[in-house]
Simulated assay, not measured.
Amino acid sequence: MSVTRSTLLQVTRIYAEDAALELPRGQEIVARWPAADIVPVASHWQIPEVHGDEANVARWVRIKTQALVLGVKKSLVTRPNGRSADFIAPSTANGCAMACAYCYVPRRKGYSNPVTVFANIEQISRHLARHIAKQGVKTEPTQCDPEAWVYDIGENSDCSVDALLSENVRDLCDLFRMTPTAKASFATKFVNRDLLEWDPAGRVRIRFSLMPAAVAKVTDLRTSPMAERIAAINDFVEAGYEVHVNFSPVILTPDWIGEWTELFAQLDAALSARAKAQLACEVIFLTHNEQLHDVNLGWHPTAEELLWTPENQETKLSQNGGVNVRYRYGLKSRAVAQLEGLIARHLPYCRVRYAF
Rank of each mutant, 00 (worst) to 15 (best):
L221F: 07
R334E: 12
R177P: 10
D174M: 08
I29W: 03
L76A: 04
A19Q: 13
F87D: 03
P348A: 06
G202Q: 14
K138C: 13
G95Q: 04
E314S: 15
Q135C: 08
D152Q: 09
Q319C: 12
E28G: 04
D37I: 10
N320C: 15
V61D: 07
C103S: 01
L221N: 02
R126P: 00
F87L: 04
Y349D: 10
Q338S: 06
N56Q: 01
P80K: 09
L164M: 05
T7A: 01
L196C: 02
L271H: 00
R108Q: 12
G240I: 06
Q123H: 03
I124G: 03
R13S: 10
M211N: 06
A16H: 07
G298D: 12
F264A: 09
H293A: 14
T287Q: 12
C96N: 01
E238I: 09
E197K: 05
V39H: 05
D255Q: 12
M98F: 02
G322T: 15
T142H: 13
P24H: 03
H293D: 15
Q46F: 15
G95N: 04
P141R: 08
A214N: 14
N320Y: 14
D37W: 09
G95E: 06
Q143R: 15
V295A: 14
T65H: 08
P180F: 07
E304A: 11
S2Q: 07
